[in-house]
Design a protein around this nucleic acid. Structure first.
Lengths: 127, 127
DNA sequence: CAGGATCCTGGTAGATACTG
DNA sequence: CAGTATCTACCAGGATCCTG
């Protein structure tokens, strides 16, 4: 699988970083939303129920810093800022889909496993 | 990409959960290590430099709870406990590889983007 | 409209000590 | 050998207030 050959410099760190970035609470859904097309800040907020303005800003900043998302400011009044996936950002979408698809496909398995594990280890049924 | 068609129940939560689980500090490397073959607790510790006994335990418990890892206890003295990927655990490996490969392939891009971003936003060079 | 600054909370992770 | 228990530190994330 992830052999040392894939990791010549001895650092698997970048992988953790990437998984961590898109594994946080909002990045994944932001990427998903932007994959449908560029969006303004407020549009994004509305597209993503439950996200706070702070977390949307932070998430976008992180994605922008990594070069996955671009930020375009239009010097207008009122202000207009548009976010979009960069080319790099678009390249991450397929592997993300792959893992997301796995998650959907095995949601029931995982849930069942968790239920069983919890039952065995906390034995509420006192079986 | 991740369309609503993939997500009929309206919950993208499971995806976040999965990304979160393997995106934490140790799960990914534990999966990677176990993918090479079953390992005992102490062997895992030695295979994963820097991990604390506590975090190894916690990580294994989480993976076990989700059904990705199995735990086999041999009632011997001294104790012997062997961990291995389950069938479900093995199925997650390919999509994980896909994303890991992406991360490796774009490590330089990401690093460069970060450097540029930091330079632009903190402008230490006062360019 | 877009987002910075501040305060607060809970979960993740490390260090250490103890146990069957 | 393979853990559990406890204590602490840090960071992600939420709520709120303020600004260009």
């Amino acid at each position: 699988m992830i052999t040392d050959a894939d990791c010549p410099s001895g650092g698997i760190e970048i992988v953790r970083e990437v998984f961590n970035r898109i594994g946080d609470k909002w990045s994944l859904i932001v990427i998903r939303t932007l994959d449908a097309g560029p969006q303004r800040f407020t549009a994004l907020r509305h597209s993503i129920p439950g996200i706070s303005q702070r977390m949307l800003t932070l998430t976008l900043r992180q994605l922008e810093r990594d070069g996955l998302v671009s930020r375009t400011i239009y010097g207008e009044v009122p202000p207009r800022v548009e976010y979009a996936l960069t080319e790099l950002g678009e390249t991450i979408v397929p592997p993300v889909i792959a893992l997301a698809t796995w998650a959907f496909a095995h949601e029931r398995d995982i849930t069942a496993n968790r239920d069983r594990y919890d039952a065995e280890h906390f034995a509420e049924e006192a079986g």
